[in-house]
Amino acid sequence: MFEARLPQGQILKKLIEAVRELVTDANFECKPSGLSLQAMDSSHVSLVSLLMRADGFDPYQCDRNRTLGINLRTLASVLKCSSNDDIITIRAEDDGDSAILIFESPSSDRLSEFDLKLVDIDNEQLVIPDTQYDAVVRMPSAEFQRIVRDMQILGDSVTIACSKDGVKFSANGEIGSGSVRLKQSSAVDSEDDAVTVDLQQAVSLTFALRYLSLFSKAAPLSPTVTLSFSKDVPLLVEFRIADMGHLRFYLAPKIDE
């Protein structure tokens, strides 16, 4: 049997809200080490990679590897039936064709149970190579979300330029052009508010805002986001999930026609 109990159930709610517009169906790979998911969007331009380690659950039980194919829109609808402070348990019997979701109120006086039919998903697993990035930018996730939203009024793509001074986002379109420049923080009260640029070499890349906007829906998961860039390789946008794992998005670079 597979059973994973997540005391902070709202993490799962935020996760599924963050990916449901990008990916329709996904295979949850359940292993003794934890839960993972890898899926591309339908146009094969971006990839979602999720990891939730077993030690982030309490308890976590996985006797053998299981693949749970789940429609994320259905899952999102079901998760809306839980409260933000509910404890959420995911359970799957060995010979079952469904995943069971249990929502438990903090005082355990309310228990709801939903049985979700599993779906068969033909999912190709891609191998993500280890990459030494030219630039790694860390910033508040709310700031990332705001910049992506602001740039969308100008055009459908954004150029992100990283230098030792900071990072500059710029867009131009028919109505005009604009940019937002973030300087590296010198002194901040909280590390979560800092903007840092870890630079091997200056880099400037252009990406479709539509996808960055979808990625930025993960902002409620984590106070900070990390953007990793190298010339001619996919952008990595990473949100850490508390102390238990991460949600990563990869986006192929735009190419000059």
Binding site: V45, L47, E124, Q125, L126, V127, K254, I255, E257
Partner: peptide
């Protein structure tokens, strides 16, 4: 003009 590249050439199949 920009073209959005596909992801697969960067990440080979398992």
């Amino acid at each position: 003009q920009w073209l959005q590249a596909q992801l697969q050439p960067f990440f080979p199949d398992e």
